[in-house]
């Protein structure tokens, strides 16, 4: 870690001044400013407009509201029934996260540390899953869920979220576990720890960095998913946040401040988590994407 940092700063000192030295400086800054505004303005607009009344929305489309309507938020929370939606999103996200972590880590432990016939085949079977486009399964999964009577239950979301998180989870975790030295098992067997003890007391704690990557990927995917919820859930009391927000905006299309306030409230938790764990989230998501 330290090595790459020093190498990086060394390079910056020697090379970048030359790269930026000429008139390119101005071009770079122009590109950056334009892209910066393109990137930031939608966030700014979303947050600021959430405080506006409808008249403000028309008369001051760009600027700050004439009056900050904080009541938009409490009203949106009530009208959109965001408490139910938040609870549902938490249940399915945490449910699928716990399942993914446990069975993903267990399978990775076996794939990384044991020798058995068909090991390559099992691994390949999981890896192929990363190539299957998730939406191609919407129709057959709907039919399956209907046949096993899981439509309109939390399981209709928890199980597919887990299933689609497993390939990447197993890929990330088993790669990490393979780097452990052989002595770990030997030491634990001498201590008389069984395989389960080894898994719970040694393997799980040691793979925390990889588990946190899987946590970020799996939680964000479940929390933000729209398509599975759209297809498998039609009961209002079970709708997750993205689905509730989409339905709410259909119903309250002309009450802009209210809709935008509901949107802000729904993205606030992930944005706050992102601001706190920025480096980990960026690393985790890119690692997951590149390996996936």
């Amino acid at each position: 870690m330290n090595q790459t940092a020093t190498a990086g700063s060394h390079r910056q000192a020697s090379g970048i001044s030359i790269l930026l030295g000429r008139g390119k400086h101005i071009i770079f800054w122009t590109i950056l400013m334009v892209y910066g505004i393109f990137t930031l303005y939608p966030f700014f607009w979303l947050i600021v407009s959430a405080f506006k009344s409808n008249e403000d929305f028309y008369s001051h489309p760009f600027g700050l509201p004439a009056q900050w309507n904080v009541a938009n938020f409490s009203q949106a929370w009530e009208t959109a029934k965001l408490d139910t939606a938040f609870a549902n999103s938490l249940i399915v996200s945490i449910g699928s996260l716990v399942l993914t972590l446990f069975i993903g880590a267990l399978a990775s432990f076996i794939l990384a540390r044991f020798q058995f016939r068909l090991k390559g085949a099992v691994f390949a079977f999981f890896v192929v899953g990363m190539l299957i486009p998730i939406h191609s399964t919407l129709v057959p999964l709907f039919i399956l869920m209907k046949q096993i009577s899981l439509l309109n239950t939390y399981w209709a979301l928890i199980l597919p979220y887990t299933a689609f998180a497993l390939p990447t989870a197993i890929f990330v975790l088993s790669a990490y576990l393979m780097s452990f030295p052989r002595e770990i098992e030997e030491a634990s067997f001498i201590d008389g720890t069984g395989l389960w003890g080894l898994f719970f007391r040694i393997i799980l704690p040691m793979s925390l960095p990889a588990l946190s990557t899987v946590t970020i990927l799996s939680f964000l995917h479940a929390w933000n998913d729209f398509s599975f919820a759209l297809v498998f859930i039609s009961k209002t009391s079970l709708k997750t946040l993205p689905l509730s927000i989409a339905n709410f905006s259909d119903g309250y299309q002309t009450d802009y401040g209210l809709t935008l306030a509901a949107m802000v409230l729904s993205v606030l938790p992930t944005i706050i988590l992102y601001l706190v764990f920025q480096e980990q989230v960026m690393k985790g998501m890119t690692a997951g994407a590149v390996k996936g």
């Binding site: 999981f126 597919p160 887990t162």
Partner: peptide, 17 residues
């Protein structure tokens, strides 16, 4: 140890395809 992962993944990713 492999059974739960194979089961969930097989049933909800592979079988639908």
């Amino acid at each position: 140890g492999l059974a739960p992962a194979l089961l969930i993944y097989g049933l909800f990713v592979f079988v639908p395809v």
